[in-house]
Amino acid sequence: MTLTDVILQQVINGLSLGAMYALLALGFTLVYGILELINFSHFNVFMVGSFIAMYVLQAFGLSGQTTILTGLPLVGVLVAAFAVTMLACGAIGVGIERFLLRPLRAVKGPAAMILTIGVSYVLFNLVILGSGADSKNFPNPLPALQWPIGGAVLRLREVLIWAVSLLLMGGLTYFVGYTKLGKAMRATAQDPEAARMMGVEVDRVIMTAFFLGAALAGAGGLIFGLYYNFTSFIIGFNAGLRAFTAAVLGGIGNVPGAMLGGLMIGLIEAFSGAFIATAWSDVIIFSILVLVLVFRPAGLLGRVAPNKS
């Protein structure tokens, strides 16, 4: 492998990881943008999502990497798995908002954030209780198709991850930019009281943000399983922390920022793993975070102070 091939390969790997982090980072940013709340339960909604996805795939009779599907059955199974996982995670997100966070809405201070940490631990332990603490072999029905690009290799799973991520991020961008509810969401993020006085049902907007964020985390959980061929109760912490870093790096509250931040974190992780050592990935990722925060406290695409004039 020449240096160019190594670089190309790491771009492929990095963009795949990055797409997953971006999907996850969007959930942090959507909720933060509206409530200025860091939702730590998001870490483990992602993890639960990958378990739900695993059960859905198993329900189709798949296990491990032994059953390979092609053509329509493959597309059907994947569409169903993404749809069920995203809806189920979305419902979990809405439940967390409606029944746990909304009663705390009027309480100032860190109570709501602490609550999300609590919820995160509850989800974490529920999964251990329900499925045990061993890591699970994730069903992967994708054929082992791959295409050489120079000396690098592009696999079907990467193409799938990019396609799904592009579709979801494009959909979200359209929703936030051009639909009535999406515009209400941006208005609420900029000035909740004014939005309310325009007749926007702020509770509905908040619920939508939680639904979308959690659904994207669900998609991220499924992607994690397809990419790494395993899942475990522990995966939420590492991926969640990186995705949160991605959101802050891009400018928390900023939708394109979360996408950019996610891709950057993915690329940094891939390159530092290839050129230095995997053990250094976290050091490098979080050092870059610290540097960005020192020199651009609002993140790459964020604004230093909200302009509410």
Partner: peptide
């Protein structure tokens, strides 16, 4: 319908989008 103190437009939305939000209901 209100005209709020200090106007309180949505600063990072276009003028047209602000008008659309006025017609939200």
């Amino acid at each position: 319908a209100p005209v709020l103190e200090a106007r309180r437009l949505f600063p990072r939305m276009t003028v047209y989008e602000n008008l659309e939000l006025g017609a939200y209901t």
